[in-house]
Write a protein that binds this DNA or RNA. Structure first.
Lengths: 137, 137
DNA sequence: TTAAGTGCAAAGGCTTTGCGGTGCC
DNA sequence: GGCACCGCAAAGCCTTTGCACTTAA
Protein backbone atom coordinates (compact mmCIF):
# COMPACT_ATOMS: atom_id res chain seq x y z
CA UNK A 1 0.00 0.00 0.00
CA UNK A 2 2.89 2.31 0.77
CA UNK A 3 4.32 1.35 -2.58
CA UNK A 4 1.08 2.18 -4.28
CA UNK A 5 0.99 5.63 -2.74
CA UNK A 6 4.59 6.26 -3.70
CA UNK A 7 3.84 5.17 -7.21
CA UNK A 8 0.96 7.58 -7.53
CA UNK A 9 3.15 10.42 -6.30
CA UNK A 10 5.88 9.46 -8.74
CA UNK A 11 3.39 9.62 -11.54
CA UNK A 12 2.05 12.94 -10.36
CA UNK A 13 -1.28 11.47 -9.36
CA UNK A 14 -3.12 12.65 -6.32
CA UNK A 15 -3.80 10.13 -3.62
CA UNK A 16 -7.52 10.30 -3.05
CA UNK A 17 -9.72 8.16 -0.82
CA UNK A 18 -11.44 6.82 -3.93
CA UNK A 19 -8.21 5.66 -5.48
CA UNK A 20 -7.14 3.97 -2.29
CA UNK A 21 -10.48 2.21 -1.98
CA UNK A 22 -10.41 1.03 -5.57
CA UNK A 23 -6.88 -0.18 -5.16
CA UNK A 24 -7.86 -2.20 -2.12
CA UNK A 25 -10.74 -3.83 -3.93
CA UNK A 26 -8.48 -4.68 -6.84
CA UNK A 27 -5.85 -6.29 -4.67
CA UNK A 28 -8.50 -8.44 -3.01
CA UNK A 29 -9.92 -9.56 -6.34
CA UNK A 30 -8.53 -12.62 -8.01
CA UNK A 31 -10.32 -12.54 -11.33
CA UNK A 32 -10.42 -10.34 -14.35
CA UNK A 33 -13.00 -7.82 -13.27
CA UNK A 34 -14.78 -5.35 -15.50
CA UNK A 35 -15.29 -1.79 -14.35
CA UNK A 36 -18.84 -2.69 -13.47
CA UNK A 37 -17.73 -5.62 -11.34
CA UNK A 38 -15.35 -3.44 -9.38
CA UNK A 39 -18.05 -0.85 -8.97
CA UNK A 40 -20.51 -3.40 -7.61
CA UNK A 41 -17.98 -4.84 -5.22
CA UNK A 42 -17.36 -1.39 -3.87
CA UNK A 43 -20.95 -0.33 -3.50
CA UNK A 44 -21.32 -2.16 -0.19
CA UNK A 45 -18.39 -0.49 1.48
CA UNK A 46 -18.29 2.75 -0.50
CA UNK A 47 -21.84 3.52 -1.56
CA UNK A 48 -21.13 7.09 -2.60
CA UNK A 49 -18.44 6.44 -5.18
CA UNK A 50 -19.57 6.88 -8.76
CA UNK A 51 -19.22 4.35 -11.53
CA UNK A 52 -17.44 6.99 -13.51
CA UNK A 53 -14.71 7.42 -11.01
CA UNK A 54 -14.19 3.69 -10.85
CA UNK A 55 -13.94 3.43 -14.60
CA UNK A 56 -11.63 6.38 -14.99
CA UNK A 57 -9.44 5.22 -12.15
CA UNK A 58 -9.09 1.77 -13.66
CA UNK A 59 -7.96 3.31 -16.91
CA UNK A 60 -5.53 5.50 -15.03
CA UNK A 61 -4.14 2.54 -13.12
CA UNK A 62 -3.74 0.61 -16.34
CA UNK A 63 -1.94 3.57 -17.80
CA UNK A 64 0.69 3.65 -15.08
CA UNK A 65 0.95 -0.12 -14.97
CA UNK A 66 -0.62 -0.83 -11.59
CA UNK A 67 -3.03 -3.16 -13.40
CA UNK A 68 -3.37 -4.29 -16.98
CA UNK A 69 -6.13 -4.60 -19.49
CA UNK A 70 -6.83 -8.09 -20.69
CA UNK A 71 -7.69 -9.30 -24.13
CA UNK A 72 -11.38 -10.04 -24.43
CA UNK A 73 -13.65 -11.46 -27.05
CA UNK A 74 -16.43 -8.89 -27.03
CA UNK A 75 -18.37 -7.39 -24.22
CA UNK A 76 -16.80 -5.04 -21.78
CA UNK A 77 -13.21 -4.27 -21.02
CA UNK A 78 -11.55 -6.52 -18.46
CA UNK A 79 -8.71 -5.70 -16.14
CA UNK A 80 -6.02 -7.90 -14.73
CA UNK A 81 -4.72 -7.37 -11.23
CA UNK A 82 -1.90 -9.83 -11.76
CA UNK A 83 0.86 -7.88 -13.44
CA UNK A 84 3.48 -10.62 -13.29
CA UNK A 85 3.87 -12.66 -16.49
CA UNK A 86 1.28 -15.38 -16.79
CA UNK A 87 -0.95 -17.07 -19.33
CA UNK A 88 -4.61 -17.49 -20.03
CA UNK A 89 -7.11 -20.20 -20.71
CA UNK A 90 -10.17 -18.89 -22.46
CA UNK A 91 -13.52 -20.60 -22.83
CA UNK A 92 -15.02 -19.62 -26.15
CA UNK A 93 -18.53 -20.41 -24.91
CA UNK A 94 -18.86 -18.58 -21.62
CA UNK A 95 -15.94 -16.22 -22.10
CA UNK A 96 -14.36 -17.00 -18.78
CA UNK A 97 -10.61 -16.45 -18.60
CA UNK A 98 -8.41 -18.17 -16.05
CA UNK A 99 -4.73 -17.79 -15.35
CA UNK A 100 -1.93 -20.24 -15.29
CA UNK A 101 1.80 -20.01 -14.81
CA UNK A 102 4.51 -21.78 -16.72
CA UNK A 103 8.04 -20.60 -16.72
CA UNK A 104 8.81 -22.55 -19.87
CA UNK A 105 6.23 -20.61 -21.82
CA UNK A 106 7.33 -17.34 -20.24
CA UNK A 107 10.69 -17.79 -21.89
CA UNK A 108 9.67 -19.18 -25.27
CA UNK A 109 11.60 -17.25 -27.84
CA UNK A 110 9.71 -15.23 -30.37
CA UNK A 111 11.54 -14.94 -33.71
CA UNK A 112 13.60 -11.82 -33.98
CA UNK A 113 12.11 -10.78 -37.31
CA UNK A 114 8.73 -10.48 -35.57
CA UNK A 115 9.71 -8.13 -32.80
CA UNK A 116 12.64 -6.34 -34.32
CA UNK A 117 10.95 -2.97 -34.45
CA UNK A 118 8.83 -3.41 -31.37
CA UNK A 119 9.50 -2.44 -27.82
CA UNK A 120 8.27 -5.68 -26.35
CA UNK A 121 6.45 -5.51 -23.05
CA UNK A 122 5.57 -9.13 -22.61
CA UNK A 123 4.21 -12.27 -24.14
CA UNK A 124 1.29 -14.45 -23.23
CA UNK A 125 0.00 -17.78 -24.36
CA UNK A 126 -3.75 -17.88 -24.76
CA UNK A 127 -5.25 -21.34 -24.88
CA UNK A 128 -8.75 -21.46 -26.33
CA UNK A 129 -11.22 -24.21 -25.72
CA UNK A 130 -14.45 -25.22 -24.09
CA UNK A 131 -14.55 -25.48 -20.35
CA UNK A 132 -16.20 -28.38 -18.50
CA UNK A 133 -19.21 -26.28 -17.47
CA UNK A 134 -19.86 -25.48 -21.13
CA UNK A 135 -19.64 -29.07 -22.26
CA UNK A 136 -15.93 -29.45 -22.86
CA UNK A 137 -14.47 -32.94 -22.42
CA UNK B 1 -15.51 -20.38 -53.42
CA UNK B 2 -17.06 -23.71 -54.33
CA UNK B 3 -15.92 -24.95 -50.97
CA UNK B 4 -17.56 -22.02 -49.29
CA UNK B 5 -20.87 -22.73 -50.97
CA UNK B 6 -20.66 -26.38 -50.08
CA UNK B 7 -19.94 -25.47 -46.52
CA UNK B 8 -22.98 -23.26 -46.28
CA UNK B 9 -25.16 -26.01 -47.66
CA UNK B 10 -23.68 -28.48 -45.22
CA UNK B 11 -24.55 -26.16 -42.38
CA UNK B 12 -28.04 -25.61 -43.69
CA UNK B 13 -27.34 -22.00 -44.57
CA UNK B 14 -28.82 -20.42 -47.63
CA UNK B 15 -26.41 -19.10 -50.21
CA UNK B 16 -27.45 -15.52 -50.72
CA UNK B 17 -25.80 -12.82 -52.82
CA UNK B 18 -25.01 -10.91 -49.65
CA UNK B 19 -23.20 -13.84 -48.11
CA UNK B 20 -21.17 -14.38 -51.23
CA UNK B 21 -20.24 -10.74 -51.43
CA UNK B 22 -19.20 -10.62 -47.80
CA UNK B 23 -17.17 -13.75 -48.20
CA UNK B 24 -15.33 -12.26 -51.15
CA UNK B 25 -14.48 -9.13 -49.24
CA UNK B 26 -13.24 -11.19 -46.33
CA UNK B 27 -10.97 -13.31 -48.46
CA UNK B 28 -9.45 -10.21 -50.00
CA UNK B 29 -8.81 -8.64 -46.61
CA UNK B 30 -5.57 -9.26 -44.82
CA UNK B 31 -6.18 -7.66 -41.50
CA UNK B 32 -8.47 -8.13 -38.58
CA UNK B 33 -11.48 -6.18 -39.73
CA UNK B 34 -14.37 -5.09 -37.59
CA UNK B 35 -17.92 -5.39 -38.86
CA UNK B 36 -17.83 -1.73 -39.66
CA UNK B 37 -14.65 -2.06 -41.69
CA UNK B 38 -16.14 -4.83 -43.77
CA UNK B 39 -19.29 -2.81 -44.25
CA UNK B 40 -17.34 0.20 -45.47
CA UNK B 41 -15.26 -1.87 -47.83
CA UNK B 42 -18.41 -3.24 -49.35
CA UNK B 43 -20.27 -0.02 -49.70
CA UNK B 44 -18.48 0.86 -52.93
CA UNK B 45 -19.35 -2.36 -54.71
CA UNK B 46 -22.54 -3.25 -52.88
CA UNK B 47 -24.16 -0.02 -51.77
CA UNK B 48 -27.49 -1.56 -50.87
CA UNK B 49 -26.33 -4.06 -48.30
CA UNK B 50 -27.12 -3.14 -44.74
CA UNK B 51 -24.71 -2.96 -41.89
CA UNK B 52 -26.92 -5.34 -40.03
CA UNK B 53 -26.59 -8.04 -42.56
CA UNK B 54 -22.84 -7.66 -42.57
CA UNK B 55 -22.66 -7.91 -38.84
CA UNK B 56 -24.99 -10.87 -38.59
CA UNK B 57 -23.27 -12.66 -41.40
CA UNK B 58 -19.89 -12.24 -39.77
CA UNK B 59 -21.25 -13.76 -36.59
CA UNK B 60 -22.74 -16.60 -38.59
CA UNK B 61 -19.46 -17.21 -40.39
CA UNK B 62 -17.62 -17.22 -37.09
CA UNK B 63 -20.14 -19.68 -35.78
CA UNK B 64 -19.49 -22.20 -38.52
CA UNK B 65 -15.76 -21.61 -38.49
CA UNK B 66 -15.31 -19.81 -41.81
CA UNK B 67 -13.68 -16.98 -39.87
CA UNK B 68 -12.80 -16.45 -36.23
CA UNK B 69 -13.23 -13.73 -33.69
CA UNK B 70 -10.03 -12.26 -32.36
CA UNK B 71 -9.16 -11.15 -28.89
CA UNK B 72 -9.30 -7.39 -28.59
CA UNK B 73 -8.41 -4.83 -25.97
CA UNK B 74 -11.53 -2.71 -26.04
CA UNK B 75 -13.50 -1.21 -28.82
CA UNK B 76 -15.36 -3.29 -31.30
CA UNK B 77 -15.25 -6.97 -32.11
CA UNK B 78 -12.59 -8.01 -34.60
CA UNK B 79 -12.65 -10.92 -36.97
CA UNK B 80 -9.82 -13.01 -38.31
CA UNK B 81 -9.89 -14.36 -41.83
CA UNK B 82 -6.87 -16.52 -41.19
CA UNK B 83 -8.17 -19.69 -39.58
CA UNK B 84 -4.91 -21.60 -39.58
CA UNK B 85 -2.93 -21.50 -36.32
CA UNK B 86 -0.89 -18.35 -35.96
CA UNK B 87 0.21 -15.79 -33.42
CA UNK B 88 -0.27 -12.13 -32.74
CA UNK B 89 1.74 -9.03 -32.05
CA UNK B 90 -0.30 -6.37 -30.36
CA UNK B 91 0.54 -2.70 -30.00
CA UNK B 92 -0.84 -1.47 -26.70
CA UNK B 93 -0.92 2.11 -27.94
CA UNK B 94 -2.71 1.98 -31.28
CA UNK B 95 -4.30 -1.42 -30.81
CA UNK B 96 -3.11 -2.79 -34.08
CA UNK B 97 -2.71 -6.56 -34.25
CA UNK B 98 -0.48 -8.29 -36.75
CA UNK B 99 0.04 -11.96 -37.42
CA UNK B 100 3.12 -14.09 -37.43
CA UNK B 101 3.77 -17.77 -37.86
CA UNK B 102 6.13 -19.94 -35.90
CA UNK B 103 5.86 -23.66 -35.86
CA UNK B 104 7.89 -23.91 -32.70
CA UNK B 105 5.33 -21.86 -30.81
CA UNK B 106 2.46 -23.75 -32.41
CA UNK B 107 3.68 -26.87 -30.70
CA UNK B 108 4.74 -25.51 -27.33
CA UNK B 109 3.31 -27.83 -24.74
CA UNK B 110 0.86 -26.45 -22.25
CA UNK B 111 1.02 -28.25 -18.91
CA UNK B 112 -1.51 -31.01 -18.60
CA UNK B 113 -2.93 -29.72 -15.31
CA UNK B 114 -4.02 -26.57 -17.09
CA UNK B 115 -6.03 -28.14 -19.87
CA UNK B 116 -7.07 -31.40 -18.30
CA UNK B 117 -10.77 -30.59 -18.21
CA UNK B 118 -10.81 -28.46 -21.33
CA UNK B 119 -11.55 -29.40 -24.89
CA UNK B 120 -8.70 -27.43 -26.35
CA UNK B 121 -9.28 -25.75 -29.69
CA UNK B 122 -5.97 -24.00 -30.12
CA UNK B 123 -3.29 -21.90 -28.59
CA UNK B 124 -1.85 -18.57 -29.52
CA UNK B 125 1.04 -16.48 -28.38
CA UNK B 126 0.24 -12.82 -28.00
CA UNK B 127 3.23 -10.52 -27.85
CA UNK B 128 2.47 -7.09 -26.44
CA UNK B 129 4.53 -4.04 -27.03
CA UNK B 130 4.77 -0.67 -28.67
CA UNK B 131 5.04 -0.51 -32.42
CA UNK B 132 7.46 1.79 -34.27
CA UNK B 133 4.70 4.18 -35.34
CA UNK B 134 3.71 4.64 -31.70
CA UNK B 135 7.23 5.30 -30.49
CA UNK B 136 8.51 1.82 -29.87
CA UNK B 137 12.25 1.25 -30.29
C1' DT C 1 -44.51 -23.03 -50.42
C1' DT C 2 -41.94 -21.85 -46.39
C1' DA C 3 -38.35 -21.34 -43.48
C1' DA C 4 -34.41 -18.63 -43.52
C1' DG C 5 -32.46 -14.27 -44.57
C1' DT C 6 -32.58 -9.27 -45.21
C1' DG C 7 -33.28 -4.43 -44.08
C1' DC C 8 -34.96 -1.06 -41.06
C1' DA C 9 -35.62 0.83 -36.65
C1' DA C 10 -35.38 0.92 -31.86
C1' DA C 11 -33.40 -0.42 -27.63
C1' DG C 12 -29.71 -1.74 -24.69
C1' DG C 13 -24.71 -1.81 -22.93
C1' DC C 14 -20.55 0.07 -22.29
C1' DT C 15 -17.46 3.92 -22.86
C1' DT C 16 -16.26 8.63 -23.46
C1' DT C 17 -16.76 13.56 -22.91
C1' DG C 18 -17.93 18.04 -20.74
C1' DC C 19 -18.56 20.72 -16.90
C1' DG C 20 -19.29 22.68 -12.28
C1' DG C 21 -18.03 21.76 -7.63
C1' DT C 22 -14.47 19.65 -4.40
C1' DG C 23 -10.29 18.55 -2.16
C1' DC C 24 -5.34 16.98 -2.29
C1' DC C 25 -0.64 19.25 -2.48
C1' DG D 1 -4.67 28.76 -4.12
C1' DG D 2 -4.20 25.79 -8.25
C1' DC D 3 -4.80 22.12 -10.48
C1' DA D 4 -6.19 17.64 -10.59
C1' DC D 5 -10.08 14.90 -9.38
C1' DC D 6 -14.90 13.66 -8.50
C1' DG D 7 -19.70 13.09 -9.58
C1' DC D 8 -23.36 13.79 -12.64
C1' DA D 9 -25.37 13.92 -17.04
C1' DA D 10 -25.42 13.54 -21.87
C1' DA D 11 -23.65 11.85 -26.02
C1' DG D 12 -21.42 8.38 -28.85
C1' DC D 13 -20.30 3.70 -30.33
C1' DC D 14 -21.19 -0.84 -31.00
C1' DT D 15 -24.20 -4.67 -30.52
C1' DT D 16 -28.57 -6.88 -30.03
C1' DT D 17 -33.47 -7.50 -30.77
C1' DG D 18 -38.06 -7.35 -33.07
C1' DC D 19 -40.70 -7.29 -37.03
C1' DA D 20 -42.41 -7.13 -41.75
C1' DC D 21 -40.84 -8.07 -46.39
C1' DT D 22 -38.15 -10.87 -49.54
C1' DT D 23 -35.96 -14.89 -51.44
C1' DA D 24 -33.30 -19.30 -51.87
C1' DA D 25 -34.40 -24.08 -51.84
Amino acid sequence: MERFIDRCRQEGLKVTPQRIAIYQVLMASRNHPSADTVYREMSATHPTISFDTVNRTLLTFADIGVIKTVESYSGSRRFDTETAPHHHVHCVKCGRISDFNDQGIDTVEVPDRVVRDFSVIGQRMVVSGICPECGGK
